[in-house]
Structure formats: C-alpha cells, structure tokens
Design a protein around this nucleic acid. Structure first.
Lengths: 187, 187
DNA sequence: TATTACATGTAAGAAGTTACATGATTAG
DNA sequence: CTAATCATGTAACTTCTTACATGTAATA
C-alpha cells in the first residue's frame, strides 16, 4: 500500500532540486548517467499520476510558454518526508545483495536533501555491510571453485570485484566528506 | 512475442546443466550468488509454465521419490537454440548501459553451452563497448562536476569505477582463456 | 506433536514495456 | 511543406510481487 517504486523515488528526488515537467524528467533519464531509469512516457506519466494521488507531489499548468502546455510538478511536504525516510533507512545485508542501485540513488541526493552527517552515516553503514558480505562471497568461491566451469568462476569473481570496488569507493567518499568538514566548504 | 525474460534465460541455462525441479531452481536462487533472481514460487513456476507453452522446455513427473511428486524440467532442442542465440548476440552500447547483469548471466554459462572461442569473442566485444563508453562518462563528469553537489559527483564516480573494474576484469578473463588454450586444459 | 524441509501451485495487484495518439511550434 | 523538437497522455500486454493454499515426510 505505501510502497513507492524506485523510479518514483528518483522522480521525487529530482523534483526537490527544482519543479519540472514530465518531459524534463524524461530528458534527464535520456541524457545523463541517471539513464538507468526508463525515459518512456508510459513509465513516467503514470508514476507522476500515482505520486499525485498519494499526495506526494502536486502540479500546476505553466501558462507562460508559447509551446504546448507544460505541467510542472513539485513535491509536497509529505513527499519530502517520504523521500527522507527512505533515504535515511538503515542499510542491511539484503540491500547490498539485491539493491545496490537503490543505495546509490539514495546517496546521490544526499547533499541536496540530507545533511553531511547523514552522508557519513550512510557510508559507514555501507562499508559495514560490504565488509561483512564480501568475505562470504570469497568463501563461496573458494569452496565451490573446483566444481565450477571457468566462466562461472569468472562471473562470480566479477561480482566480488564489483563489491570490492564499491567498498573502496565508500572509503574515498568518506574521506571526501571529512575533508569538506575540516575545510568547512560546500561543494 | 518471442521475447524471453532474464529469469527465463537463467532457468534455461541451469536446466542445461542437468534436469531440475522448480524447487531445485528456487534453492539455487536462494543460496548462491545467482540469488539476484527471485526465488519466489510465484515467479518461477509461471516462468517454467510459459517456457513449456513456447516449447522451450519439457517436463516429466519423477516417480521414484518417496516425497511429494517432483516435476523435472529439461530444455528442448528449440530451448537450447534460443539460449545459444541469446548468449552469442553481439554486444552493443545499450547492453553496457542498461543490462550488465544480463551480460554477466550470458557469460556465466559460456563454458557449458558455448565454446572458448565464443567466450573470447564475448570478452572482446565487452572490452570494446566499455572502452568506448567509459570516456563518455568521464567527460560527462568533468564537464558537469562544477554544477553537481558532492554526493552527486561521488555517485557518478562510483558508476565509472564499477565500469573500470569490469573492464579490467574482462582483460584478466581474456588472459585466463588464453592461458587455458595454450595449456590445452579444461576447468 | 509440532516444526522444518520438501514440493507445487494460484490469485490479485503493481508497475513496467511497447506502441499508439494527439497537438503546437520552429527550423530548414 | 516537412521534419524535428517540444509535450502529454492512453491502452494492451507481460511479468513480477506478495500472499495464500495444499500436501508429504522426517526430525526434534
């Protein structure tokens, strides 16, 4: 009942940056690294409609333009709350196994909708879960290697290396936040 | 009409290793790194049913067991053909942007259902597409960095590092196949 | 005797895909 | 005049999720 799709959270995050139309959002998905999301109108317009029905966004028709009417969306207070709740959830093992994309989406909006302390808490949690999970994968591979074909072993190795890279990234990200804190700068 | 879901391809690949029941397949998804797929009965049994209707797998009831009856599935000739066609498709830019998981699934069965030459061809294609795409991402980040918040920059950086890791993996995988070729060994 | 593991399935609903439909304005 | 870009939407279909339903055998 109260579950919101990943796409819907992405929309909610982007709308917190500035009010945008469905078309604006489609363009972002079509032309930036956020392009992991679908830019199809059949995904975006119904998703905005649903967010509206749940009271998480509201919209008004922009009238100034000479082109066809644009409908500009912005999050409501409830929408901002829902986003924040999602963004600051505790990271669990399940997240690193099945939802790394979701974790990165949460993090990518951290500066705009959260505090530096929340970013650091997020990175700490991520490091902790990865630190617990990676050895499991290594153990699995060591144990089952003899029975696996080369391609299977390599595929698992690829997954592990991806997690290791993420772990190292979390460390550098953490130190970037520490540096910023010491210098007291923004951006 | 003739599109087959990723889950269905995973099932088809596993059934080529040996005949298995729906429950066997669920256990694999529940307890191995293939666990990125859902182990829910509501996903697997209907998927097997669909594969059956399309003539890609056939099943028979195993009678020897004392437990509740098991239905064992195995791919048909058409199923093996469909899998192979999918597995050896040319890798395009779109694949590295939206379907890295699918690429790894294709590769993971390469030794069992394809030849070493196909594995090498796959890795060559992957390297080539990544080699073309990664600089795009780097350029995007360099250009847009000034306007992005720290968390946004770091999120993009994480994605790039993931692709770079995959690129390095493809090189080591390639050399693993070269080594095996020289030695003439298997496994 | 109660729980766990084995084992297969269905039903309702959510959300995405592809394809289609519509319409205005500007650039060539 | 034609194509491209801006802009919003709908409909049919597919597939997955969650939850329920059923039943057997072994184990604690």
């Amino acid at each position: 009942m109260n579950d919101i799709s990943l796409l819907a959270y992405a929309l909610l995050g982007l709308l917190q940056q500035e009010p945008r139309s469905g078309y604006d959002l489609r363009k972002i998905f079509a032309s930036t690294p956020m392009g992991t999301f679908s830019d199809s109108p059949g995904a975006i317009y119904p998703a905005l409609e649903r967010l509206g029905k749940r009271g998480l966004v509201r919209s008004r028709i922009e009238e100034t333009s000479g082109l066809r009417r644009r409908r500009l969306f912005r999050p409501t207070a409830a929408g901002i709350r829902a986003f924040k709740t999602w963004q600051t959830k505790t990271i669990v093992r399940e997240d690193v196994i099945h939802s790394v994309d979701e974790l990165m989406l949460r993090f990518s909006f951290m500066d705009e909708t959260g505090s530096a302390a929340e970013a650091r808490r997020f990175l700490k949690g991520l490091k902790s879960e990865l630190g617990g999970y990676i050895p499991n994968l290594r153990r699995y591979l060591a144990k089952n290697s003899p029975d696996m074909p080369l391609s299977g072993r390599l595929a698992v190795e690829s997954g592990i290396r991806g997690y290791e890279t993420l772990f190292r990234w979390a460390k550098t990200a953490m130190s970037a936040y520490s540096k910023r804190k010491r210098r007291g700068t923004r951006r």
